[in-house]
Design a protein around this nucleic acid. Sequence first.
RNA 1: GUGAGCGUAGUUCAACCGGUAGAGCGCAAGGUUGUGGACCUUGUUGUUGCGGGUUCAAGUCCCGUCGCUCACCCCA
Length: 421
Amino acid sequence: MKVDLSVRGMRDYFPEIYHRLSHIFRAWRETALTYGFEEFDGPVIETLELYKIKSGEEIVNQLYNFTDKGGRELALRPELTPTVARMISKIQNQVSKPIKWFSIPRCMRYEKPQKGRLREFFQFNVDIIGEGEGIADVEVMSVAIDSLRNLGLTERDFVVRINNRNFVSEYFNGLGFDKHKTGPLYKIIDNARKVSREVTSAALDELELSSGQRDAVRDYLSLNNSEDLKKLDSAIEGKESLLNVFSLMEAAGLKNYCEFDPTIVRGLDYYTGIVFELYDRSEKMRAICGGGRYNDLLREFSGVDVPACGFGMGDVVLGEILSAKGLIPAYKKCVDYFIVRVTDNEIDIMLKIAQSLRKRGMKVEFTYRWMPVKKQMAKASRVQAKKALILGVDEIAGGMVVEKDLAAGKEVKIPLNSLLE
RNA sequence: GUGAGCGUAGUUCAACCGGUAGAGCGCAAGGUUGUGGACCUUGUUGUUGCGGGUUCAAGUCCCGUCGCUCACCCCA
């Protein structure tokens, strides 16, 4: 066995795999553009400092960092948001808001690879910067939904689970939760859907809540849809904004994709309003996409208050879902013409024909080394050529070429001139 | 970081209780001189991840190591 020099968690995009990837990229890009988002990108390498601002010192364990030859502490980007924030801070005074940007960056994270999670991945990033909550949140979620619809997924395949960070914190506010208990509590809530009731219950026991608090958590977790929300005490902050989102989603015709879900909290501290995650309905996989509103994050980078919301959607989980559902179109080379030369004397005329057809946008191939016609024909069908052009000595002499339709197996003689010019 | 499973031809995998490695696919050649896909024939490749141990004998058992996969942690 040869030594395998590939790097752990890194991916080799062989043509068939790359085809799948570009299929996804095309849908992402097309969709974002229809919403008027502009494409941008940042550097693959940023300072380590940039990531510490948002995520603290612990983040260093989870990213590819290194010291460059100039002694600078740098890292390969694990996500795009800090880059966005950094770039926005440079220009936010000069451009009109809202800023609507999207990107498909290649990102790296130093983690143990597992299902749906690799060290190298692409992430569709969509952000609206400089616009407060409301329709902007809905637009961002709509881009996420439509990009999946663009790939052939329907409301039967996936769902957007929505919550509001303010709603969660207000709900438990006033019930006397210790500050140090809210973090663990959110974690339990976040997990509640993924684990059994017993596990959740046991985890809550460890928090040693009062019976009133315990009931509040139970009631909270029993909220299943926006109807349950409506029945709630109207004083709870965040509730109206959630209901507003659902009504806007209905107006956009996307209501069937959306669900209120009390367990969507998202681990990140920087979310300040709407938070959402997209899941495969089978729930067998991790989230396809996650995002929300982060009104305070930009201040950490720029010192200026700029509200923002957005999401990130990775290619790995999505790719697996699409493959499982047979939604990746078959990979074909789709060569239009394969030119076959009977002897090696027809090289000049072959190249002439090839260039002329290529100028017309046709995909043209031929073998680089001469081989028996039989072999050349075999190559032609292997690349799934539509037609073979057979350059025979006699036909060329008479100004003609044999054109064979490879699917039908029929051939006709056509004038050489029709291929040239 | 923790735990489990797995590492055999280019690839997907096989080899009963330890007895010195096999198949499909692929690839190559041929099946009459200028016509493909299908089919048929023939051929092709291995330090069984690496190192050590037990044994008359190790792909198979044991230890270590590296790698892969999955789960936990975490998930920007």
